[in-house]
Design a protein around this nucleic acid. Structure first.
Lengths: 157, 157
DNA sequence: GTATATGCAAAACCTTTGCTATAGT
DNA sequence: ACTATAGCAAAGGTTTTGCATATAC
């Protein structure tokens, strides 16, 4: 199957492994806060906002501050442990899926679903790009309305 | 040629024509402020931010307020006269190009260049999307570093 | 023991809102 | 004349910063 609704425990383990080693490589302390924040981000398929992350992490660490959440999000992004999804409403949504992939975005509820790289044919450019532009990667966002937001009409009255 | 560095006057005229008629259709007053704001957005290929728009429009209308810029940006987007580019740094960048197109985005300086629809082969999905998802459109952002930001090395010492 | 990270509070942004005066039709 | 919009100022929301204390290594 292609669309993960729950996180595969093996994928989670691998992500946490990468997290530990990347922190070690980059000299980042493995604080309890960092661990809980990253574990939360790594175990979800929902692309949470900083605020949602704060609320969830707070269940484990009631004293945590929103500033710590933001500082660590920034740190994680700097060392490539976390990405940010560009949303049509330009809110910050976080993505701990480090594999190349695209996104399916519901315009109504804002839900974001990962689309694995192998589900989308590689981008083909039919004309050369402007001189000197060095392509690093590309992002495809598929916009529409999800099944939850426009359910099939069974019976209307 | 494919990449517009300057605005084609014919394209500008067409955009302003569409602006006039769309405003009429939707019962929007053609205020001086609206005209100057839209004319600025329509004549550029640079995808300005609200702040940049404000600074430029202020040259013509020194008394204009930033709130007016924001209110009109919102109005123009509601009636489909303006779009918003999703940027990696999630700043608001405006786009008066109403033709379907993709974007080339420089990660370093934030420059955004339109890539015409015909330069990018249509998106092909190799697997079905999650049940019930209704696709409306999709956006391709090509990320990298522009020629200005990483100029070719002529001679190094 | 030393460097780094946390928590708090305040500041800095960016965007929206409410209200009165003004301008468009 | 009537309605919609502009301008102003204030509020709202989000993200960042500075600094003292606490924690990791």
């Amino acid at each position: 199957m292609y669309y993960h609704v729950r996180m595969d425990p093996q994928i989670l383990d691998r992500r946490l492994e990468v997290f530990r080693s990347r922190c070690a490589e980059r000299g980042l302390s493995l604080t309890h806060q960092r661990w809980v924040i990253y574990r939360f981000l790594a175990q979800t398929v929902q692309h949470p906002s900083p605020e949602v992350t704060f609320e969830q992490v707070r269940k484990d660490i009631p004293s945590i501050s929103l500033a710590t959440i933001y500082k660590n999000i920034k740190t994680f992004m700097e060392v490539g442990l976390l990405h940010q999804v560009s949303t049509p409403d330009h809110t910050m949504r976080l993505d701990a899926n480090l594999e190349p992939h695209s996104h399916l975005i519901c315009k109504r509820c804002g839900a974001i679903v990962d689309v694995p790289e192998e589900s989308v044919a590689p981008l083909q450019l039919k004309h050369p790009l402007p001189a000197g532009f060095r392509v690093e990667n590309y992002k495809v966002s598929i916009l529409g309305v999800c099944g939850q937001c426009s359910p099939p009409i069974i019976a209307s009255n």
